[in-house]
Design a protein around this nucleic acid. Sequence first.
DNA 1: ATAATATACTAACATGTGTTAGCAAAAAAA
DNA 2: TTTTTTTGCTAACACATGTTAGTATATTAT
Lengths: 205, 205
Amino acid sequence: MLVYYLRLMARIKIDKNSSRKEVIVAKAAALFREKGFKAASMRDLAESVGVEAASLYNHIKSKTELLHELCFGVANRFMHKMDEVESQKIPAIEKVETMIRFHIDEMINHYEEVYVSDREWKHLSDPYLSNFQNQRRMYRKRFAALIEAGIRDKEIKKIDAPTAVLILLHAIGGIESWHRSTQKISAAALTDNMITILVGGLTNK
Amino acid sequence: MLVYYLRLMARIKIDKNSSRKEVIVAKAAALFREKGFKAASMRDLAESVGVEAASLYNHIKSKTELLHELCFGVANRFMHKMDEVESQKIPAIEKVETMIRFHIDEMINHYEEVYVSDREWKHLSDPYLSNFQNQRRMYRKRFAALIEAGIRDKEIKKIDAPTAVLILLHAIGGIESWHRSTQKISAAALTDNMITILVGGLTNK
DNA sequence: ATAATATACTAACATGTGTTAGCAAAAAAA
DNA sequence: TTTTTTTGCTAACACATGTTAGTATATTAT
């Protein structure tokens, strides 16, 4: 008996507003988050996309490009928010709280990308690496400046501003554990608790 | 002209209180911290130890064993401290502060090991992986219990204790950035600032 | 000095990696 | 339909990886 097998080729599914490359980048974010950039192989990624490894290269230039895309995508969002907040005419402590809320929101709703950008940027290669590090340094300086303004206005305790920034940013990174935990409190409750502790820790009186 | 090359073999230098294995583990901590577990190769490690890669295997069983050693070494230290603090007869808020200070101290003085244990444990393999995860969960539960006791005694704000733990632990992880920064404030100043913000964020009034 | 043990070396292996070449098939444009 | 372009496939590459075998050389014990 002669049997013909109909071979149909896989295809990367896309919805209206996202290119195939964007689908790959999104899957990469999830995978890099789960395994780490180095431990995640292109064959892993291919499988999660539903295609053979070589096929990915019709859409992307390299594995590292995926990391660029993720890291700078996230970095740009934070930079733009910082621009926006800096130019607002509100008390410094409110600026700080706005930024904290933004960080929390990003960490809740764009978990994978933000997490990867935060933990895996080391694996970028120059010139992207130094570029990213510079942006990061700059961002933290601007954040510290917000806090220092709050200290001058006596809204915020007399503390070392860079240390405060470092605490804030890393504390928010802890939302990672919230995502992984089985019995999550609601996102709103999480946000409230974080704001209470963090802003409470900064505020004068 | 005939020339004889005198070949002398490298040797892992040890001082009185540390075996060759301990030297390797220490170097591994530094390397894993810098590059990440996956990205750090045994040849890298060998070079940093001053020996050929194969020679390492006279002292260790595998690359993963190095990670075990580091992760469980750190985990045990924290567990023992928790035992000690739990059994003390002092207010809950002071227990919390003691533990926070211990974390800060560990992060300052045993940076590499603690950092690696915190970030690279994912690369452990079962049964060590589940074991480690269990210990971690347990530890956080006990930490949360300290905070809950403080809430009952009205020493600590009414907050979600697990969330508070997650904030505390991750915030302290931020000392990583302090280590990497060029213009460091003193360790004592860092500690003071962190205590001010974190304990201040928890304390009622 | 001799024997025994600990430690290091060279060479090589099997495996997993990112990536490319060349071709097939599907989709889009003509 | 025919042509062109996009997208996927198989096969293979060059290279890095963790690790082992077998051997040489130090160090320690007898």
